[in-house]
Amino acid sequence: MISLHQVSKTYVTSNSRFQAVDAVSLEVGAGEIHGIIGSSGAGKSTLLRMINLLERPDEGTVIVDGNDLTSMTDKHLREARRSMGMIFQSFNLVNNRTVSGNVAMPLEMAGLGKKERAERVREYLDFMGIADKAEEYPSRLSGGQQQRVAIARALVNHPKVLLCDEPTSSLDPQTTVGILDVLKHINRTFGVTVVIVTHEMNVVTNMCTTVSMMENGGLINTFKAEQGNTISSEDISRITVGLSRDKVRDTHG
């Protein structure tokens, strides 16, 4: 579904160069829940942002659902982005629009009619269990509720891919479990491919079917759980210390 080939990104300021991502190749299969882990500054978020080209790689290609995003015109890229949802650590809702106003936004971009928009918005607010908040403004909601609004907004245009940038890092443990359940449910119900960046290992063990580990801008390992299983904490300790090489597919270089 997603294929990054030898992507690199360097940030250059007047007095320094920082290689955020260094020649990384990554394959994410359709229907996977793919976790990207690593310490802060490892390049996880930059890598995630390359999938929908919020960060354009200096080198390499990004292919999503068979289309090469890196060679697209702006117009086609915008259309391609509409088939990918994204959620963020800080939710990034438009706080001067109501909950339903926020969820309607991707549909406005896609040019859907007013009546159809209202129906779809209601359907997804119902699905996320926040239909009673439809006319509230985001500032009146809790963090967990705001993230649910953001998820509804990311899903409303029927994306094939959902990109999650530390979606539970600003939430308490209980709310985190609720959000992870929702993401799993979405993956099962709609078959949406999920890529999730996190530094919380319990997020990986709770839901990920594949996990990739990054360090200093490079991809160290990718590890896939057995069919039908999620990654276990043993798997994580194995890839983090580099043991059991037979089970680990080294994708570096």
Partner: peptide, 30 residues
């Protein structure tokens, strides 16, 4: 206007005009 709002707009495939009118001006209106 928080940077995240423009990022969310781009991730939704907003055009420049949509970014300005539907996101920036709405968040900055007061």
């Amino acid at each position: 206007v928080p940077k995240g709002v423009t990022e969310a707009a781009s991730s939704m495939g907003a055009s420049t005009l949509q970014l300005i009118v539907k996101f920036l001006y709405v968040e900055a209106r007061s």
